[in-house]
Write a protein that binds this DNA or RNA. Structure first.
Lengths: 231, 231
DNA sequence: TTCTACATACGAACGCCGTTCCCGTCAAGT
DNA sequence: ACTTGACGGGAACGGCGTTCGTATGTAGAA
């Protein structure tokens, strides 16, 4: 039973109850629906029915808000216990999963690239798991510290690139326009210019499936890594 | 003999001679000095002593201007003839060189990441060379088309990340602050949480040299690629 | 119960941004 | 000499991140 109207202090509804979780949730809603560029302080505030200034009580600045989104996304990562007999598969799965969750929230990958060293808990859990797989696989410690970075970078960078054109129909159209441009350019050139690009035109056009492409990239890297393993 | 002063139409000097090369040169000057974010239409126009609107006669929009910068940067790449006996070294050198020139102009890497598929001549020359090395190395054609992408992506992504903190003292300080944050966080946790991250703390802190790190990443990838080569 | 102090909410404003409109001006073609 | 069309650039539109100052609801003190 609601309180009678005359007891309400104001005709305005109850004062907004802001808070970090509400803000992050709103931001993610906007990001998934309209893309990362739409996640501005003003737009998020609007989503919550308030003004931009209010957000600064809970969040230092836009960058911090973005990092909070990234953390939220990483919480979807699940990390099985390392198993020495199939560490390569596990490592690969983790990389693919990492990329998958970023693609599930286009925009997250961009945040991942822009954030120097993500320090939020969700991200650290993922890093720890990745290191674990390499350790049980017998990759030397000094190598792990160095290999972790490019591996995570590959996943993030791929997700970033993919989200550029996967998201919108406009992006996809743009990509095809670009490929056509290149083909036209190749045609306009004497054949001895750019011979390899010319020879591989077919393969490039066929290779439409970016994901298989990426999966292979990870395979290659892990194959290289296994070369260095001692066990 | 110059015309007498009273014959001049205005006291202003001769009409500005704009043009794409002048604009790109000015933009690069600003980028190298103040970073990519400072390369705004207004700022570039100011550098040329004119208004922002004037630039739109020569350049479709800001994105196109950025791509022109990227092309200019890629012109610094030099590409030796492929040599079947040392294709791996050549491939590695190209990747490193690619990354080096991007690091020489911080901001270029960000453009490279943001640009869906760069179609400018300078970039295509680099791609062609990369494919050439793999072909003489006996990497199967269908694989080349797929491997080229992640390889270029690794270089670009690394240069991007590196330029985030290499450029300014502020960035470097930020990076160290982040590492300290992580260490403090690890200390505050029960030991069984994040065990691998904890175990590798030393290696992570020591590994200060990002470049060696990246070089190793490329090595690993090429080692993996050689696994697939038939010759 | 009334008053006070404090944390929070938020309108307004500052100085940026990309882009477009529109008009003045100059140079080349007729 | 006149016309025309391409180019330069001022002003304006709508949006941005962030800060300042003030209003407001609440919790604790008197």
């Amino acid at each position: 039973m609601p309180p009678p109207p005359w007891r309400r202090g104001t005709d305005k509804p109850v004062r907004q109850q802001l808070g970090v979780p509400a803000i992050v949730a709103a931001a993610m809603r906007i990001m998934d629906r309209e893309g990362l560029d739409a996640v501005s302080m003003r737009r998020v505030a609007q989503e919550l029915g308030t003004g931009a200034a209010s957000l600064y009580q809970h969040v230092r600045n836009k960058r911090e808000l973005h990092e909070l989104i990234l953390d939220e996304v990483f919480r979807d990562l699940d990390v099985p216990e390392p198993d020495p007999t199939r560490w390569q598969q596990q490592l690969k799965d983790l990389c693919l999963d990492l990329t998958r969750i970023m693609l599930a929230h286009p925009g997250a990958a961009k945040i991942g690239m822009e954030t120097l060293i993500p320090t939020t808990p969700g991200v650290l859990v993922g890093m720890d798991a990745m290191m674990g797989y390499m350790r049980v696989g017998g990759v030397p410690d000094h190598l792990i510290a160095k290999a972790c970075d490019p591996l995570a970078l590959m996943g993030t960078a791929f997700a970033y690139e993919a989200s550029l054109w996967t998201t919108s129909a406009a992006g996809r159209a743009e990509a095809h326009r670009r490929i056509d441009e290149i083909e036209a350019y190749l045609d306009s050139l004497p054949h001895e210019q750019l011979p390899h690009l010319t020879a591989l035109r077919k393969q490039i056009r066929d290779e439409d499936d970016g994901w298989a492409n990426f999966e292979l990239g990870i395979d290659i890297f892990i194959a290289g890594l296994a070369t260095y393993a001692t066990r």
